[in-house]
């Protein structure tokens, strides 16, 4: 059984390697070109630093606004798709809807929204909202499903209404988790938003793509450095905040 599985795995992987034209020799032949690009990227052209910083701020704005709006929109969806809160007739369609929309990446949403509302950061914000709402709703619903039954029973036994049970028995258990998920999403959305500019949805990616197209590698490397720095700073801030939550 184990051997058969291993054999199948090897055959499948070998075929994918052949079908994708994955050839180590081609990579080795390409190495000089990579070295050449790296050489041309150095030293970074710092004259484009103001533009790169401006782009970075835009990217953070896109991620921040998109995540904040999504964090709120995901609340009702999260409760509707939690097995222990919503009736089966609501839960199943809600879960299916979430899974459907979550399987589309932020970048694809950006393409759609650029076509709909035009170029700039706004379609980027919309794309972040579209993806993050459904992915946060999924995380929320899992947090709700993982709550302790005991406090909910205790609040129910006091004669509380359904909404009071939610507010006093459920929310205190899930809110810190919700906040932690939102921060985590903010981190990944900053990274996702760096490439939104590639499809015309604003932010630092726009500059990166522009300089790469113009073969201004030294300028592009400045943009890349700013991107890395921005992501690292946000990650550090966010994980510090998250550590204090749980």
């Amino acid at each position: 059984m184990k051997r058969a599985a291993l054999f199948v795995a090897i055959v499948v992987l070998a075929w994918t390697a052949w079908d994708t034209g994955s050839d180590p020799i081609r990579l080795v032949r390409g190495l000089p070109w990579i070295v050449d690009i790296l050489r041309r990227m150095l030293p970074p052209d710092l004259s484009v630093l103001p533009a790169a910083l401006l782009g970075a701020v835009k990217t953070v704005e896109i991620a921040l606004l998109g995540t904040a709006v999504a964090a709120v929109l995901a609340l009702p969806l999260g409760f509707l798709s939690a097995r222990n809160v919503a009736p089966a007739s609501v839960f199943h369609p809600a879960r299916a809807t979430l899974n459907f929309f979550r399987s589309v990446d932020t970048l694809v949403y950006a393409l759609v929204f650029v076509a709909a509302v035009g170029l700039g950061p706004f379609p980027g914000v919309l794309a972040v909202i579209a993806y993050t709402t459904t992915s946060l709703a999924k995380l929320y619903s899992e947090a709700i499903e993982g709550i302790e039954r005991g406090p909910v029973d205790a609040i129910t036994a006091t004669g509380a209404t359904r909404l009071q049970i939610l507010k006093f028995g459920v929310l205190p258990q899930v809110l810190p988790l919700f906040l932690s998920y939102v921060l985590y999403r903010l981190e990944t959305n900053i990274r996702a938003a760096t490439v939104l500019g590639f499809v015309g949805a604003g932010g630092i990616g726009f500059y990166l793509q522009t300089y790469l197209r113009a073969i201004e590698y030294a300028a592009a490397s400045t943009v890349l450095l700013v991107t890395v720095l921005m992501v690292m700073v946000v990650d550090a801030l966010s994980s510090k905040l998250r550590a204090r939550l749980v």
Partner: peptide, 8 residues
């Protein structure tokens, strides 16, 4: 198990 809301 007391069933208090721990964080409250």
């Amino acid at each position: 198990q007391f069933n208090l809301v721990r964080r409250a």
